[in-house]
């Protein structure tokens, strides 16, 4: 049976189609989900895509957090459902307290859009197990609120528990503490990532196809299950 991966569209989501296409190329069935729904349906995993949900009003991700479907998703995520938040999706996960810390305005105040080198620091999560530990990949990054912040205690916990999933290499594009590009929750089923692996799944349109691993990773357990 083909795995079903939901992609939630909020008003202002931009990358939901690309995320769905990445799911398809990874070999799963993308399931479009609407923020105002109260039913997650029968999905095996969920992607929160990039964009500017609710116009980023108040704070990026602050209002999307209260979408009816997000409340369902929060329960499912605490129950172990694999969830990947990309860019705005990462912001929504932090605002929802499914991940610690916050994403704030880039230190440079500039919108950053570039191909970015990352190092996969934890290849044991639901979304990164297709990668080798320490593997470097190049995927696009594009954000203005991408600077990851957390207090020192949280940072120490993330580092000591191996919950920094990906780190910026060569250049830190937004001033994130500890060069953090992505983190996960304690169980490793919820991952937030500022760069965009869904834009690096085909040679024609991406700087590489090295982003596909995030989407194939989550399928491995399902196929094996």
């Amino acid at each position: 049976m083909t795995a079903r991966v939901g992609v939630i569209t909020f008003p202002g989501s931009l990358d939901d189609r690309d995320a769905a296409r990445a799911v398809l190329l990874a070999g799963a069935e993308p399931v479009p989900l609407w923020h105002a729904s109260t039913d997650l349906g029968e999905v095996d995993a969920v992607v929160l895509p990039g964009g500017f949900s609710y116009g980023d009003y108040l704070r990026a991700g602050a209002i999307a957090r209260f979408a009816p479907l997000m409340e369902r998703l929060a329960d499912a995520a605490r129950g172990g459902l694999p969830v990947l938040g990309i860019c705005n999706g990462f912001q929504v996960l932090c605002e929802s307290h499914l991940l610690p810390g916050a994403l704030t305005r880039n230190a440079s105040l500039h919108f950053v859009c570039r191909a970015q080198r990352l190092r996969i620091e934890n290849s044991g999560t639901e979304w990164t197990r297709a990668y080798e530990q320490g593997q470097e990949i190049v995927v696009p990054i594009k954000n203005i609120d991408g600077r990851y912040l957390a207090d020192q205690k949280t940072l120490d916990e993330l580092e000591s528990e191996g919950r920094v999933v990906a780190r910026y290499v060569d250049v830190n594009p937004n001033g994130s503490l500890n060069d953090i590009a992505g983190i996960c929750n304690e169980a490793g089923n919820v991952v937030g990532l500022m760069p965009h692996p869904e834009h690096a799944v085909e040679a024609l349109t991406g700087p590489s196809s090295e982003g596909l691993g995030f989407f194939t990773s989550v399928l491995t357990r399902m196929v094996g299950a």
Binding site: L58, R59, A62, F66, C94, E95, G101, A102, T104, D151
Partner: peptide, 8 residues
């Protein structure tokens, strides 16, 4: 709940 993010 909404107006401020107590993390930051």
């Amino acid at each position: 709940t909404l107006l401020a993010n107590p993390v930051i």
